[in-house]
Simulated scan of single mutants.
Amino acid sequence: MSIPRRFLPTISSLRALEAVDRLGSAVAAAQDLDLTHSAVSRQLKSLEEQLGVTLFLRAGKGLRLTTAGRSYARSVRDCLDDLAQASLQLRAAGERNGLSLAIPLTFGLYWMAPRLQAFLCDHPQVHINQATRDGPVDFATEKFDAAVHFGVPDWPGVDTLPLARNRLVPVARPGTGLGAETPPRQLLEMPLLHLTSRPGAWESWFLQHEVAPGHLRGALFDQFMALSEAVAAGRGAALLPDFLATREIRAGRMCQIGPAFEDPGNFYHLVWPQDPAPGPELERLIAFLRSRAEDPQP
C-alpha cells in the first residue's frame, strides 16, 4: 500500500538534517548547502513540526541530535545516497537503457571487459555501470541488476550462468630456471605467495599433482593484482587465474613454472535476482554471455 505523500518531508529539509548530523552544527551545514544559517534553522523546525518528534536538543546557538534524530538521519542519508546514485546513473546513461553490474576487479579487467565491449558494440542502446565487488552481492540492499560471484553456486534467491572455469597457473619471474614442465615437488623449494580469499590453493595444487605439501608459509595478498606485482618483482611464485597469467606471460613479466590447476568445484558465475524477473537489457546480456561462456565441464 502506498504511503500518502503528505507524510513525506521536503528534500531541502532532509538535506538540512543530514548535513547537521554529518557536520555537527547548523553553521557548518549552512556552508555545505550554500544557505544561510536561518534558512537551515527554518528547515529543521519545519521538519520537526511535520514529524511531531523532537529531533534536536537546543543549547544556546548549538544543536545536538536526539537518539531519534540520529537514527532518522542515518535513514535519510541512505535515501539521499540512493537518490544521488540513481540521478548520477540516469545522467550518465541519458536516453539509453542502463544496467548496473558488480564484478570482481581482476576478472572484470581481463575476462569480462572485452566481452562487455563486444556486447556494447552489438547493443549501443544499452549503457553499463560497473562497480568492483570481490564478494557476493546482496541484491536486497545493493542496487545492482546482476553480479559476478565466484565459488560453488549455492547463493539463495538468484539465477546463475556459469561463465569461466577456475583455472590457476603457477608463475614466477623469468630467470628462475623453472618452466612449464618443472616437477611440482621442486616448487616446494620456492617462496610461495598466497591470496587471502583462497588460502588453500597451493595445497590443492600440490595434492592434485600427488605431492604432499606439508606446512606451506608465505606472504598473503588480498588482490590478484597485488599478487601479480609481487611475482613480477621476484618475491616468489603464485597461482594466478589463467586470464591474468596469460597476459603477464605474453608481456614477458613472468613465466609458467608448472602445470595448470583445474578446480572443477568453483566457477565464475553471472548471477541476478529471481524476483523481479530480468528486464530486456539484462536478458540480452545474459544471452550474449551464454554464447561466450566456457563449458563448465573441464
Rank of each mutant, 00 (worst) to 15 (best):
M1N: 07
S2E: 13
R5K: 07
I11E: 15
S13D: 00
L14E: 05
L17P: 01
L17V: 00
E18W: 02
A19S: 12
A19K: 11
D21I: 02
R22M: 11
A26N: 04
A26V: 04
A29H: 00
Q31P: 05
D32G: 03
D34I: 07
D34R: 13
H37V: 04
S38C: 01
A39G: 04
V40G: 08
Q43P: 06
E49G: 02
Q50I: 08
G52R: 12
T54G: 05
F56A: 05
F56D: 02
L57C: 02
R58D: 01
L63M: 02
R64L: 05
L65T: 00
T67S: 08
A68P: 02
A73E: 07
S75P: 06
S75N: 15
D78N: 05
L80N: 06
D81W: 03
D82N: 10
A84S: 15
Q85R: 10
S87E: 06
L88Q: 13
R91Y: 14
A92H: 05
G94F: 01
E95N: 09
A102T: 07
T106G: 06
F107K: 06
L109M: 15
W111L: 02
M112V: 08
L116M: 12
L116W: 09
A118W: 04
C121M: 08
P124L: 08
P124A: 09
V126P: 01
I128T: 05
N129T: 11
A131N: 00
R133I: 09
D134S: 12
D134Q: 13
G135T: 15
T141P: 01
E142S: 12
E142Y: 02
K143R: 12
F144E: 04
F144C: 11
D145P: 04
A146Y: 11
A147V: 03
H149K: 08
V152D: 06
D154F: 08
W155L: 09
D159F: 02
D159N: 07
P162A: 13
P162M: 06
L163A: 10
A164R: 08
R165K: 11
R165S: 11
V169T: 12
P174Y: 13
G175E: 13
G175N: 06
L178M: 10
A180C: 08
P184L: 04
Q186Y: 10
Q186N: 04
L187D: 12
L188S: 14
L188Q: 14
E189Y: 03
P191I: 07
T196E: 13
R198E: 15
P199T: 10
A201G: 07
Q208A: 12
Q208P: 15
E210Q: 15
V211M: 14
H215G: 07
L216M: 05
A219Y: 07
A219W: 01
L220Y: 08
L227G: 07
G234M: 12
A237F: 10
A238R: 07
L239I: 04
L240A: 01
D242C: 04
F243M: 10
L244R: 10
R247E: 12
A251V: 10
G252N: 04
M254K: 00
C255W: 04
I257R: 13
P259Q: 13
P259E: 11
A260C: 00
E262T: 11
Y268P: 08
W272F: 09
D275P: 03
P276Q: 05
P276C: 04
A277M: 05
A277W: 01
G279M: 15
P280L: 12
L285E: 06
A287P: 13
L289N: 06
R290S: 03
R290P: 01
D295Y: 10
P298A: 13
